[in-house]
Design a protein around this nucleic acid. Structure first.
Length: 811
DNA sequence: CTGACCTTGTTTTTT
DNA sequence: ACAAGGTCAG
């Protein structure tokens, strides 16, 4: 096979990158050109994976500026991720167009809405310095409301309610406009709690993610003058990843574009993978109806992948109904088929991938060596990453995880941020509750309740409530002392912050002994921190927070201190604390562009929009991918979204795409036998090559599994390539039957009567990996078995044979 | 009020 | 398997 020496994408289009010149419109293909140059009126660009939609989009922006259709800052370009926005900004500023009119508005829906909402916050009962809550704050707030409403929080957890409310907000339903069909939500208490929640947010001067859009839609709907202003300001609107818009975003766009209708939406219905988050593929399907006379352009020439990869992806996605229908094609020839390999278990899969990556890196097998940066492992669920991380750590293979536990979601970072938030605004009750007893100040539930009561009955914030508690002696002793110290610290930090932000007022303030916020500054030290960075250090120091971790003996303490240092360092790129806090609430990604070459591990969702020469797609097993939960919750619709996810995964690959699955995997700490994903069956055979992992199954490894209790021979048999094994076709036939019948079965669980009926509780059985055992229980098509050596496992019945057949000695 | 122990749910996916 | 939350003794 002739692996191309230059990645396909570069062969076909890369020249553009290097050559400065005019607008490069001549480098666009016919439909791309159409998308970039038909400037007026509504346009829908249906762009398949790897067809150069970003190029078309950027060229369109350049063309708008070049043709003086609008000043550059009258163009609005909306993306879904910060990464996409950043990339767009970079590429636009590299284009040789006159940006004297200012940068176009480019950002995510959310970041653009924050900008707008800060200007008009009072119209929805907020101050312009409102804070943005993250999901954790949101849940804690909801929990308080649930408990206050006398609802059993165990049965009706805050997470559930937050999901319900998010959904409503995605549909642009306010408590006032909530349709009666929703009355029964959350045990009938949803609507009332939603209203309470929104009220509470107002008093906290805060909003959640959904509010950013919802409030702007509300403002646009209720204030014609404001809407008109923005309608005439934003002369051209472009939207990337349009298939991911939810109803609120759709309304927002429709309102803004209602006047001139210069709305260009780029999307791919086959890559809609955020339905669970409220995205409506319907938005893309109804575009032509809503904007009559819309031009529709299809980008179908793929510049990214080999023909085999493209064909495999097309074969899989063909299983979906309700597609707008595109036929991707490529001029590329040759290339490797999609590679498929079965493994015994997840650990072995990780081991094989590790070795394969090393092999690709050193460039054996007639293929040129590849950089680790050119390889990615794309998983369905983040817990799959662990096996790879473990394995790569042991063999010393450098990797980076994208979208793992996010930096700003870490405990210590959130604590530190809570302190910063309180320095900025003492009204932030959620932040106060978070740190009031961190580090320990002897303030438990009871003290917090007292403070809360005092705050409520006086209609003030909790910090004020704490003040009252100290003055009235409601909280005394150790806790009282700690609380008094905290409050005076908060005051001092606020005063310092205030002096930093308003230096011109500080003289007056010094004269009458208070800042104009009425905060005492008399005891400010002469060497008060001059910058927000110093202030941040002082806060972490004086609060005792740093000390707390210094004294902590747990193994993760040093790492946490590191993270705190990193947090302070991150402040350097911001002018002040406020700006930083806003950044953090919106930019939740932690891209680390380090120089070292590394393999990338990430979820399929995170991979959308990216491409790699070599892509590994592990864990293609029914229940894991497609995810059982997705199918249970959304049935066929869920399955189709999973299939789109598979399509996204395959189309990330430029040259080599390797799909794998394992027969056994640990789920919730228990071994479970797995069946290959139904998507494996959907791969067109002509474009798939089945691998057998030479050198791994052969000599040398037989002993590694000796402790499973199976004979070496049986072990070898189990390790033989599952795809070519005699049982494969039969297994596939069974899997097919399962998947077909499970569509009508809400649980997706089908009882394989023949398999199960042959066992009853107490039977002695044999399994190739776990050896002999006794059946303890039967659940659907799975058996609970207590294995003699391997302990309790859940195993699909078809992998079990009666012990007598395997030659088990009777007891 | 704190810390040790036990129970429980968790593994989709993210602005 | 593991983390987060709850329970209970000091």
């Amino acid at each position: 096979m002739n692996a191309p020496k230059v990645p396909l994408s570069q062969r076909a289009m890369g020249a553009i990158e290097g050559v400065p010149g005019a607008l490069h419109l001549e480098w666009l293909n016919e439909p791309q050109l159409e998308a970039a140059t038909n400037l007026a009126g509504p346009m829908l660009v249906l762009a398949g994976a790897g067809t150069g939609k970003t190029r078309a989009l950027i060229s369109r922006i350049a063309e708008l500026i070049h043709k003086r259709a609008a000043r550059s800052n009258e163009i609005l370009a909306v993306t879904f991720t910060n990464k996409a926005a950043r990339e767009m900004k970079d590429r636009v500023s590299q284009y040789p167009v006159n940006l004297a009119g200012g940068m176009p508005w480019m950002g995510t829906f959310h970041s653009i809405c924050v900008k707008l909402l800060r200007r008009h916050a009072e119209l929805v009962g907020l101050k312009s310095n409102f804070t943005i809550l993250d999901t954790d704050d949101q849940n804690r707030l909801l929990k308080q409301l649930i408990v206050a409403a006398n609802i059993d929080e165990k049965r009706w957890p805050a997470r559930l309610l937050s999901g319900v409310i998010d959904n409503w907000k995605n549909r642009a339903w306010t408590p006032e406009t909530l349709p009666s069909s929703e009355a029964q939500a959350f045990n009938g208490r949803g609507p009332e709690l939603y209203a309470q929640y929104q009220e509470r947010l107002k008093t906290l001067n805060a909003c959640d993610f959904g509010d950013l859009l919802l409030h702007m839609v509300t403002i646009f709907q209720k204030h014609d003058d404001i809407l008109a202003k923005y309608q005439s300001w934003f002369k051209y609107i472009l939207v990337d990843e349009y298939q991911d818009t939810n109803v609120a975003q759709y309304l927002w766009l429709r309102l803004l574009a209602a006047g001139h209708k210069n709305l260009c939406c780029v999307g791919d219905d086959d890559q809609s993978i955020y339905g669970w988050r409220g995205a409506e593929v319907g938005n893309i399907l109804r575009f032509e109806k809503d904007f009559s006379g819309a031009k529709v352009v299809r980008l179908e020439q793929n510049y990214r992948s080999t023909a085999h990869i493209l064909a495999a992806a097309s074969g899989v996605i063909a299983g979906n109904s309700d597609r707008l229908g595109k036929e991707l094609w490529t001029e590329a020839e040759g290339g490797e088929k999609v590679r498929l390999i079965g493994h015994w278990d997840g650990d072995e899969e990780a081991r094989w991938v590790g070795e394969e990556i090393e092999a690709m890196q050193s460039g054996t097998r007639g293929r040129a060596g590849m950089s680790l940066d050119d390889m990615a492992i794309l998983v369905r669920a983040s817990h799959q990453m662990r096996a790879f991380e473990d394995r790569f750590l042991t063999i010393g293979l450098p990797y980076r995880v994208i979208g793992g536990p996010r930096f700003y979601e870490r405990l210590e970072i959130r604590d530190a941020m809570a302190y910063f938030r309180l320095a900025v605004s003492q009204d932030d009750d959620l932040a106060f509750e978070r740190i009031v007893n961190t580090p320990r100040r002897g303030l438990g539930d009871k003290a917090i309740q007292t403070i809360n009561m005092l705050a409520r009955s006086n209609g003030v914030s909790m910090v004020e409530g704490a003040r009252i508690a100290i003055e009235t002696g409601a909280i005394k002793g150790k806790g009282g002392k700690g609380l008094a110290e905290l409050v005076s610290n908060l005051d001092r930090w606020a005063a310092i912050l205030h002096m930093q932000s308003l230096p011109e007022l500080s003289e007056d303030a010094v004269i009458d002994g208070t800042s104009d916020l009425g905060l005492p500054i008399a005891d400010l030290p002469a060497d008060a921190p001059q910058t927000h960075i110093e202030l941040a250090e002082v806060i972490l120091d004086e609060s005792g927070y740093t000390t707390m971790w210094l004294n902590d003996k747990t193994p993760e303490a040093p790492g946490r201190l590191e993270n705190l240092k990193e947090l302070v360092k991150a402040l350097e790129s911001f002018e002040n604390l406020q700006g930083f806090l806003e950044h953090v609430s919106l930019i939740m990604d932690n891209d680390t562009d380090d120089a070292e070459q590394k393999v990338t591990i990430m979820t399929l969702h995170a991979a959308k929009g990216l491409e790699y020469p070599a892509v590994f797609l592990p864990g293609w097993e029914d229940g894991l991918f497609p995810s059982q939960r997705s199918m249970d919750e959304s049935g066929l619709k869920g399955l189709e979204e999973e299939r789109r996810l598979a399509y996204v995964g395959i189309t990330r690959a430029e040259e080599v795409c390797t799909i794998s699955f394992a027969a056994n995997r640990r789920v919730y700490g228990q071994w479970q036998s797995q069946l290959p994903s139904r998507f494996v069956d959907e791969l067109p055979e002509a474009h798939v090559e089945v691998l057998t992992a030479p050198g791994l199954y052969g000599g040398g490894y037989g002993g590694a599994s000796g402790d499973y209790g199976g004979s070496p021979l049986q072990d070898r048999a189990a390790r033989a390539d599952a795809y070519n094994s005699p049982g494969w076709k039969r297994m596939q036939a069974q899997a097919d039957r399962r998947s077909k019948s499970s569509h009508s079965n809400a649980k997706g669980l089908v009882i394989d009567a023949t398999a199960v009926s042959s066992f009853t509780q107490g039977d002695r059985v044999f399994h190739t990996k776990f050896g002999y055992g006794t059946v303890m229980g039967i659940e659907g098509d799975k058996l609970d078995i207590e294995f003699d050596k391997a302990g309790a496992k859940k195993v699909v019945a078809k992998f079990i044979v009666p012990a007598a057949q395997a030659g088990d000695a009777p007891f």
